[in-house]
């Protein structure tokens, strides 16, 4: 859904509205709160966004703004900041290295733990308008050689019922599909109007869409024995307690040894101790340990 926006260096405005120290303090705080590392090379971009928030909140200085943000816990402001600092977008093949990690490494390991007939379960949350779960499905069908030997179930959830409706419908424009190899577009989509493509019915009907609030244990209780979760760029929007609740709920939903993929600028290390980092050739992911792990 989101990533740190990359923007060219602009020419307008004062060269450095914030001092090095101010920026360092801000970055440290922002990282502590969100787990997002701000890239120093994008200083101009960051500063412009911070200055914009200072102006919008009516603060007269960075100091006043930062103090309010830190000491009063200013509810809502952190979320506004995250929105300023990130770009919301979703498209097919987004952050593709994680899907490659799925088909080249994770699924084989998951399959090794399965008894005959036991399904492999994958959960995309938040699935937004559906690009991610369909990308997962196509990747598995195309690139995982053992796909036919297993029953693979893909769940796709979002808290927003409007985006879920669009996800079920599965119709996209050129922009969403631009990264998808052309032969795959031909195989899994049909042209429904000028420059609008719809996912073929067979694929649309194989994904279980549903509305879920990840912080609510009653809602997530419907999801169990999940082997792989894609939870990208969601937790950064949560406050500390909801983020921990979300992590707890994912832990409950997962099979031992199951994996989680977070967004590329996110890290589980700021959220919970429940999972262990696991490095594959393609990506760093998080793993639910097997039980009876020592303290």
């Amino acid at each position: 859904m989101s990533a740190l926006a990359s923007e060219g260096q602009g020419a307008e405005g004062p060269p450095h509205p914030l001092s090095d120290e101010e920026l360092a303090k801000f970055s440290e705080f922002f990282y502590r709160k969100t787990g997002i590392r701000l890239d120093e090379r994008k200083r101009y971009y960051m500063e412009r966004r911070i200055v914009e928030r200072i102006r919008r909140t009516g603060c007269r200085s960075f100091f006043e703004y930062f103090t309010t943000l830190k000491l009063n816990g200013a509810a809502g402001e952190l979320e506004a900041l995250i929105n300023e600092m990130t770009v919301n977008e979703t498209y097919f093949w987004r952050e593709n290295y994680q899907f490659e990690c799925m088909t080249r490494s994770m699924l084989d390991e998951i399959a090794r733990r399965k008894r005959p007939g036991e399904p492999i379960r994958i959960w995309s949350i938040p699935c937004s308008t559906g690009e991610e779960p369909y990308t997962i499905a196509i990747h598995i069908l195309e690139y995982w050689a053992r796909a036919d030997s297993y029953d693979i179930e893909i769940f796709a959830s979002d808290i927003d019922s409007n985006v879920l409706k669009r996800a079920r419908d599965g119709t996209y424009d050129e922009r969403s599909l631009s990264r998808l190899p052309p032969q795959l577009r031909a195989r899994y989509f049909k042209l429904v109007s000028e420059r609008r493509w719809q996912v073929i019915n067979e694929l649309r009907s194989s994904i279980a869409f549903g509305s879920v609030n990840l912080s609510d244990p009653l809602e997530t209780a419907r999801y169990r024995q999940i082997d792989l979760i894609f939870c990208r760029n969601l937790l950064i929007y949560f406050d500390d307690v909801s983020r921990r609740l979300a992590a707890e709920n994912m832990f409950e939903a997962m099979s031992p040894g199951g994996f989680i993929c977070l967004g590329h600028s996110e890290s589980m290390s700021r959220i919970t101790n429940l999972f262990r980092p696991r490095q594959f050739a393609e990506a760093l992911v998080y793993q639910k340990p097997a039980p009876s792990r020592g303290a």
């Binding site: 502590r32 890290s267 290390s269 700021r270 262990r276 980092p277 490095q279 760093l284």
Partner: peptide, 14 residues
């Protein structure tokens, strides 16, 4: 640098 043990493990693995 890393801020806690988990982040340390991530850096070590990467």
């Amino acid at each position: 640098e890393a801020i806690n043990g988990l982040e340390g493990l991530e850096q070590l693995l990467q």
